[in-house]
Design a protein around this nucleic acid. Structure first.
Length: 567
RNA sequence: CGGGGCGUAGCGCAGUUUGGUAGCGCGCCUGGUUCGGGACCAGGAGGCCGCAGGUUCAAGUCCUGUCGCCCCGACCA
């Protein structure tokens, strides 16, 4: 491709609306343009990279026996009503009506569709397992689209669905996909980590998320260098911590005027925060909850909601706290409480002579012995893991990092086959439910994640496997005939050898072309100027390392190909 | 939806306080001089100042409404 023909309008300045590096750089490199909030056009450079990622995904899916299909984006309401998700999905679903006022939606995902499809024709155990997948647009009317392609309302996703005879089969399919995903993200040149995750509202049990490690990631993960533990912090389980050894003392009420926060109370009483009990009031559809964690800990609301099996869990407001505790925020506590369900973190129950609110303004209780003074309805692990906590598997201190979720593998079991009556006959002629799994890769998000992980102040640094083009040839002076002749020759020879190459034939100064080359992020740049001509060689510059080298003109094509393989 | 901010040329912004001929930089077009990291000179094109209504002799600027966008929180590939 010649640059004069390439539709890649680069920008010098950063558009005000772009915040994160991937968004800014894709915009500046002329890869994407916005049509509406969270909805983008992909220009040639972006589309080429997306197709490369898709192709990697496709090859790995096919390698595991997946079969590519394409299902409708426009889906009838009925199948969603059958599983109950027409209502559950809420405002996040793009809904539309046809001319007869029949309800449809734009598919946010395809469990209903694929189950309805497969159950029509799969009747026998002989037809299972079946793995089908598609790569296409998904639609979710996100509460808040943001960060460019990272959280769009229209995005490209690969979704594979596995149908097995039983859970043993599901385990095999799950393992296949887990392995395939590791292959996919490795081939895309990404530093990633599969982590244990919370199944969330989709239901089912057992799930891993594939996280690309990046500071701008929306998810926090905890992992252990001592063993293979790695989990989304939402999910990461924790061991209960022991407390100081100290003789039990009698309960006492102390004045703590104006001390409303853990830190303030701790300082006022000259104690460390881990000697305090943090009491947090929540309201749920099943009534009010008082959650207790140690003062230096945070509540994990996902764990709490799962434990109580509630859908709504919100922090109580000041009014609710008044009516429940006859006190104000900052002074509430669990001692002597009977009208609120108390949930204590396991570590709290190990505390001795602790401090908590007294349910009276400007008053706290000291020498609280949780086992003696608190009557929790539940004692469980409800806290959020943090850097340095002991690993739940091996006890070594865990580390934390931020990650971008680019894929998820999920065991659905029979949730959808049951709701949609997807059954088969086994060897004994018995009707049984198909056991399902679903496995997604955010293709467009993966492209954004790759940029988040691989960029510098000058622009994108593509891994060669997903670069829109691998090489750019920059003639220093377009009007110099010998330079142009050589540039054209290199262009032809590399193209003939199957290398994807752009010839920057624009009549621009070299500086402009260098800047654009860095911005677009070609892994390799070939500069054709006096130096190269004089040495009768090809001048290469590696985008990632910024190192330059000269290759003799004789045999340079093989050299370029070898170099690319290492990028 | 709650909180914060912004809509003026393709992009980045000033002008709004105090109403009075719509500006700057980059980019774009023409010609010339340049040419190894975003050149220089000269000339030029390009605006329903988000939209609608109102106040006024006069509105980018004041008032009301509305739409859109960005950031922070609850959602998720």
């Amino acid at each position: 491709m010649k640059m004069t023909n390439l539709y890649a309008p680069t920008l010098r300045e950063v558009p005000a609306e772009a915040e994160v590096p991937s968004h800014q750089l894709m915009f500046r490199a002329g890869m994407i343009r916005k049509a509406a909030g969270g909805v983008y056009s992909y220009l040639p450079l972006a589309w080429r990279t997306l197709r490369k990622i898709e192709q990697i995904v496709r090859e790995e899916m096919d390698a595991k026996g997946g079969q590519e299909i394409a299902m409708p984006i426009v889906q009838p309401a009925e199948i969603w009503q059958q599983t109950g998700r027409w209502d559950v999905y809420g405002d996040e679903m793009f809904r539309l009506k046809d001319r007869h006022q029949r309800d449809f939606c734009l598919g946010p995902t395809h469990e209903e569709m694929v189950t309805t499809l497969v159950k029509q024709d799969v009747r026998s155990y002989r037809q299972l397992p079946l793995l089908v997948y598609q790569i296409q647009n998904k639609y979710r009317d996100e509460i808040r689209p943001r960060f460019g392609l990272m959280r769009g309302r229209e995005f490209i996703m690969k979704d594979l669905y596995s149908f097995d005879r039983d859970t043993d089969g599901l385990e095999i399919s799950y393992k296949k996909m887990y392995d395939a995903y590791s292959q996919i993200f490795s081939r895309c040149g990404l530093e990633f980590r599969p982590v244990e995750a919370d199944p969330g509202a989709i239901g089912g049990s057992g799930t891993h998320e594939f996280m690309v490690i990046a500071d701008s990631g929306e998810a926090a993960i905890a992992y252990c260098d001592g063993c293979d533990f790695a989990a989304n912090v939402e999910k990461a389980e924790l061991l209960s911590l022991t407390s100081v050894a100290e003789a039990e003392k009698p309960l006492e009420k102390v004045a703590t005027p104006g001390q409303k926060t853990i830190n303030a109370v701790a300082e006022y009483l000259s104690l460390s925060a881990d000697r305090l009990i943090k009491s947090l009031a929540f309201v749920t559809e099943k009534g009010p909850i008082l959650a207790l964690v140690r003062g230096d800990h945070e509540v994990n609301e996902i764990k709490l909601a799962n434990l109580l099996n509630v859908l709504q869990l919100e922090m109580a407001g000041e009014k609710e706290i008044q009516s429940l505790f006859h006190s104000e925020p900052g002074y509430i506590g669990p001692v002597g409480l009977s009208n609120v369900t108390i949930v204590a973190d396991a570590s709290v129950m190990n505390m001795v002579n602790a401090v908590c609110g007294a349910n009276a303004a400007d008053q706290h209780l000291t020498n609280v012995m949780p086992l003696r003074d608190i009557k929790p309805a539940h004692v469980a692990d409800i806290r959020l893991i943090r850097e340095g906590d002991p690993c739940p598997r091996c006890g070594a201190p865990v580390k934390t990092a931020r990650g971008i979720e680019v894929g998820q593998v999920f065991k659905l079991h029979t949730k959808y086959s049951q709701a949609l009556d997807a059954t088969y006959l086994d060897e004994n002629g018995q009707e049984r439910l198909m056991v399902m799994g679903c496995y997604g890769v955010g293709v467009s998000r993966t492209m954004a994640a790759a940029i988040e992980q691989h960029h510098d102040a000058d622009g994108i640094i593509w891994p060669a496997s997903i670069a829109p083009y691998q090489v750019v040839i920059v003639p220093i002076n377009t009007k110099d005939e010998s330079q142009m002749t050589m540039a054209e020759q290199i262009y032809r020879e590399l193209s003939a050898a199957g290398v994807e190459v752009v010839l920057d034939d624009r009549e621009e100064r070299s500086g402009v072309k260098f800047k654009d080359a860095d911005l677009i992020g070609y892994p390799l740049r070939i500069t054709v100027g006096p130096k190269a001509l004089k040495e009768n060689s090809v001048e290469l510059k590696v985008r990632r390392t910024k190192e330059s080298l000269l290759l003799p003109l004789d045999g340079y094509v093989e050299g370029v190909i070898r170099l690319l393989a290492s990028l």
